[in-house]
């Protein structure tokens, strides 16, 4: 789980952690800034690998457990690599009654992943969400910041193709 991609040599580890060092500048010992630091680190790395969390804990003078506790509490933080494209399928009440479940099943089938998983090529991460506030477009999904509404399962392959390039 959450293994860093930095390889084993000290040199490549240093290179891998260089952007994090920049993020951490000015935050040394500032325990109250843990959440913004985690957000910035996740923006940089796409997720929060163990090595990154350790560095953050050391820099903010926290224990690994304390940081891990915060990371696992908030659903915004991820310990696994995430796809380039994040698909959020709405299963709120309106989408549910208008076939959101079938849309989700079609995406699962197309990508070969389950809810909450990431494709092996790291192109897509699939998540179901409770409501994205676009009930008028139900059933609706979001891919990154794009909204796709009034969907039927047969429209899914063409939409996904746009993001595969």
């Amino acid at each position: 789980m959450g293994q860093c991609q930095c390889g084993n040599s000290a040199e490549s580890k240093e290179k891998y952690l260089a952007p994090l060092k920049t993020i951490l500048e000015g935050y040394e010992g500032k325990q109250k800034d843990l959440i913004p630091v985690l957000q910035k680190a996740q923006d940089e790395y796409g997720y929060l690998p163990e090595e990154v969390i350790k560095e953050i804990a050391n820099a903010l003078n926290l224990s690994l457990s304390q940081v891990y506790g915060v990371v696992t509490f908030y659903s915004q933080f991820h310990l696994e690599p995430r796809g380039e494209n994040i698909i959020r399928v709405c299963l709120g009440t309106a989408c549910h009654v208008r076939g959101g479940g079938q849309v989700l099943n079609k995406i699962k089938e197309e990508l070969g992943v389950d809810d909450g998983e990431t494709t092996e090529d790291l192109k897509f991460t699939l998540e179901s969400v409770a409501c994205i506030g676009a009930c008028g477009l139900a059933p609706v999904i979001m891919i990154n910041d794009d909204t796709h509404g009034r969907l039927t399962p047969d429209k899914i392959p063409a939409i996904l193709d746009k993001y595969k390039a």
Partner: peptide, 28 residues
């Protein structure tokens, strides 16, 4: 002042654990 143990996860899944659920022998 050690904080080897912490609440992790949330709701019914909450447990007291170590960072990355590492065994006691491998933490601080």
């Amino acid at each position: 002042g050690v904080s080897a143990l912490e609440f992790t996860e949330r709701g019914f899944n909450s447990i007291v654990s170590t960072g990355f659920d590492l065994p006691q022998s491998e933490v601080n």
